[in-house]
Amino acid sequence: MSRSRDIKSFLIDLAVYGVLVVAYFILVLQFFGGWLTDLFHNHRLGYAIVAIMLMVTQAAGLEVIAHFVLKLVRPKKP
C-alpha cells in the first residue's frame, strides 16, 4: 500500500517537473532565443550577466515552483 503510494507520488513529481521544464524550455526558446543571440554578438557583458541569471533562475526558480505545485497535488497521507 505504502509502496504504491510512493510510486504514485513519484509519478506525480515527474509529471509536474516535466510540464514545468517543457513550459520553461518553450518560453526561453520562443521569447529569448533571438534576443540572447543578439546580446552574445553585440553586448558580451550583458550576455554573461543574463546567462548566469537565467541558469540560476531556472535551477532555483523551478525547484521552488515545483515544490509549491507538488504540495498542492501530492496525495495526502491518510
Binding site: 521544464v21 524550455f25 526561453v28 526558446l29 540572447l36 550576455y47 546567462a51 541558469m55 531556472q58
Partner: peptide, 9 residues
C-alpha cells in the same frame, strides 16, 4: 546558454 538551458530541463 541556449544549449545549457535545454540540457538543464
Amino acid at each position: 546558454i541556449l544549449i545549457a538551458l535545454i540540457m538543464q530541463t
